[in-house]
Amino acid sequence: MAITAGMVKELRDQTGAGMMDAKKALTETEGDMQAAVDWLRAKGLAKAAKKSGRVAAEGLVGVAVEGGVGVAVEVNSETDFVARNAEFQSMVAEIARAALGVAGDVEAVKAAPMGGKTVAEIVTDKVATIGENMTVRRSARLEADVVAAYVHNAVAPGMGKIGVLVGLKSTGDAEKLAALGRQIAMHVAATNPASLSEADLDPALVEREKQVLTEQARESGKPDAVIEKMIVGRLNKFFQEVCLLKQAFVVNPDLSVEKAVKDAESDVGAPIAVTGFARLEVGEGVEKEDEDFAAEVAKTLGR
């Protein structure tokens, strides 16, 4: 029997299975829809789909660097127990390595080849075997002369709760550049800057902040000329707080990051430019359901 696209879509809608899995199920059962559903259930793939509605706000960020390319990938799970599972950690490490070979967007990472399947298919398989919803949520990619990485709260090499990449452009000593880049990456992990520089800030964010500062200044009752100067000064302070290059360097708060980079040029032996950074923190922006410890244990045990 010919398997049509409509049949594949219907089966996917019923089970949440991947396209190739749905097509294979229909082929194996000669187009029998109910038998195909049972086939997927038997393989654990329909079971995985049932879990896909659960909130996955735990997990790990995996980072990998090769040559002048660095990637960070956030892979979520429902509980921290699974994030500490060696099987899950091994999968995250493999996904990060697979991400090195594709574009930076998360859909490209999901479609990347890994162990004879795609990353998305591997994750689906793990959902079925481990028994929790998992998802590849976000990814980032940097290319530069030197890409440095830092993982905060590392649970294994190259993975933890926060992953940071920093790109540096320079013809200087690569080893010293990497050391500087790691320091900057540690700074980024701690301060979570909104942008590299003032020019990179979201204009809407700047305008919103300016409006707030304007209203605050007007409350002082001072003349307009004074208010205008107050706004300029407060905006500059805002830029120092949220722009990486203007922030006080955590390694030496007496210097801005920009000044610390400039001072490092003599040691590196060439001009240095920070070309970009990426910071991924597990569960950032995900609304997590409140759950007590006992309930988390029970869920992990499948009760």
Rank of each mutant, 00 (worst) to 15 (best):
residue 3 I to S: 05
residue 4 T to F: 14
residue 5 A to M: 13
residue 10 E to R: 06
residue 11 L to T: 04
residue 16 G to T: 01
residue 19 M to D: 02
residue 23 K to C: 03
residue 28 E to R: 02
residue 28 E to N: 00
residue 29 T to K: 03
residue 32 D to I: 10
residue 34 Q to M: 15
residue 38 D to M: 10
residue 40 L to A: 00
residue 40 L to G: 08
residue 57 A to T: 01
residue 62 G to E: 15
residue 65 V to P: 09
residue 67 G to Q: 01
residue 69 V to T: 02
residue 72 A to N: 03
residue 75 V to A: 08
residue 76 N to S: 08
residue 79 T to N: 08
residue 87 E to W: 14
residue 87 E to A: 09
residue 88 F to Q: 09
residue 95 I to Y: 14
residue 101 G to K: 11
residue 102 V to Q: 09
residue 104 G to N: 11
residue 105 D to C: 04
residue 107 E to A: 15
residue 110 K to T: 01
residue 112 A to S: 08
residue 113 P to V: 06
residue 113 P to A: 13
residue 116 G to C: 05
residue 117 K to T: 13
residue 123 V to H: 01
residue 125 D to M: 07
residue 128 A to I: 13
residue 128 A to V: 07
residue 130 I to H: 00
residue 130 I to W: 06
residue 134 M to Q: 01
residue 138 R to N: 08
residue 139 S to D: 04
residue 142 L to R: 00
residue 144 A to E: 13
residue 146 V to R: 00
residue 146 V to T: 05
residue 149 A to S: 07
residue 150 Y to E: 07
residue 151 V to L: 13
residue 151 V to F: 02
residue 153 N to C: 10
residue 155 V to Q: 06
residue 157 P to Q: 13
residue 164 V to T: 11
residue 171 T to N: 10
residue 182 R to F: 12
residue 184 I to A: 07
residue 188 V to C: 02
residue 190 A to R: 08
residue 200 D to M: 14
residue 200 D to P: 05
residue 201 L to K: 04
residue 201 L to N: 09
residue 204 A to Q: 12
residue 207 E to D: 15
residue 210 K to P: 05
residue 217 A to E: 05
residue 217 A to F: 01
residue 225 A to R: 11
residue 229 K to L: 15
residue 229 K to N: 14
residue 232 V to A: 04
residue 235 L to Y: 02
residue 235 L to N: 05
residue 239 F to G: 01
residue 246 K to T: 07
residue 247 Q to N: 14
residue 249 F to S: 07
residue 253 P to I: 01
residue 255 L to Q: 15
residue 259 K to P: 05
residue 261 V to H: 10
residue 261 V to L: 13
residue 263 D to E: 15
residue 264 A to N: 02
residue 265 E to W: 07
residue 269 G to H: 15
residue 275 T to V: 13
residue 276 G to K: 02
residue 281 E to N: 02
residue 282 V to D: 05
residue 282 V to Q: 06
residue 284 E to I: 10
residue 287 E to P: 07
residue 291 E to D: 01
residue 292 D to K: 04
residue 292 D to W: 00
residue 293 F to W: 10
residue 294 A to T: 12
residue 299 K to Y: 13
residue 303 R to Q: 06
